[in-house]
């Protein structure tokens, strides 16, 4: 078995850590981060689906991955939107992304090839929002110990994951043709995924501690 594949499996399994934490406190999750549990539930399902499709039916289907990415975008955007009072802005963001994706599907020829099949737009929006959340946290000073706030870890996970993905996307365009380098580069999203899952786990763990200490 190839090492990249092993790493990919390992990284995919890492989602179990936050998922278990989410299941343990399934009903106790506060509404502002509770959508995360659906994301964590969908992640292994989509992985299994992809694996089955490629292994059993020998279909290399990027569609499942794209749908998962879209779900992830929607969930994160929703979670972040709960942090702000201005919901219209988020609705506009969401509409833009939806329209963009539909456009890519229907008229692939009119979109610059660079952006086809990428999540660059989603990523930029989420990066912007997570930075805004950091700024907001710093301004409001709502809690004594910021590291105990789940939303901080979620936004950091988002920032890290999407900026990493953006980097991978940009460099993959740059390294077009160099198959060896590319195959290593494609390991990076798995690592990012792993880190993201760990950060989600931290967020959920902090929430668990918070709930426990407040009782």
């Amino acid at each position: 078995m190839q090492i990249p594949l092993l790493i990919a499996y390992f990284c995919s399994l890492s989602v179990l850590v936050p998922l278990i934490l989410a299941i343990v406190q399934w009903r106790k999750l506060p509404s502002e981060i509770s959508p995360l549990r659906w994301l964590l539930l969908v992640a292994p399902i989509s992985d299994i689906l992809m694996l089955t499709l490629s292994r059993v039916f020998k279909i290399r289907n990027l569609m499942v991955g794209d749908i998962f990415m879209f779900i992830q975008f929607s969930v994160l955007l929703f979670i972040f939107s709960l942090q702000f009072s201005r919901k219209t802005l988020f609705f506009i963001f969401y509409s833009v992304v939806v329209v963009f994706h539909i456009f890519c599907l229907v008229y692939p020829n009119y979109v610059p090839s660079l952006l086809i099949g990428s999540n660059a737009v989603d990523g930029l929006i989420l990066i912007g929002i997570s930075i805004a959340i950091f700024y907001k946290l710093l301004n409001e000073l709502k809690v004594m110990h910021i590291h105990r706030l789940p939303i901080l870890w979620i936004s950091f996970a988002t920032l890290f994951y999407y900026s990493g993905s953006l980097f991978v996307f940009l460099s993959s365009n740059y390294l077009e043709g160099d198959t060896e380098s590319l195959s290593y580069l494609w390991m990076l999203p798995n690592v990012l995924n792993f880190i993201k899952n760990i950060l989600f786990a931290i967020a959920l763990w902090q929430n668990y501690r918070l709930v426990k200490s407040s009782i």
């Binding site: 890290f160 990493g164 980097f167 740059y174 390294l175 160099d178 380098s181």
Partner: peptide
């Protein structure tokens, strides 16, 4: 160039952290 990219990438991640 690959080395560069790797350096830039890790730098970027490091800076984020």
């Amino acid at each position: 160039e690959v080395v560069n990219i790797i350096i830039i990438g890790s730098m970027g991640m490091l800076i984020l952290c």
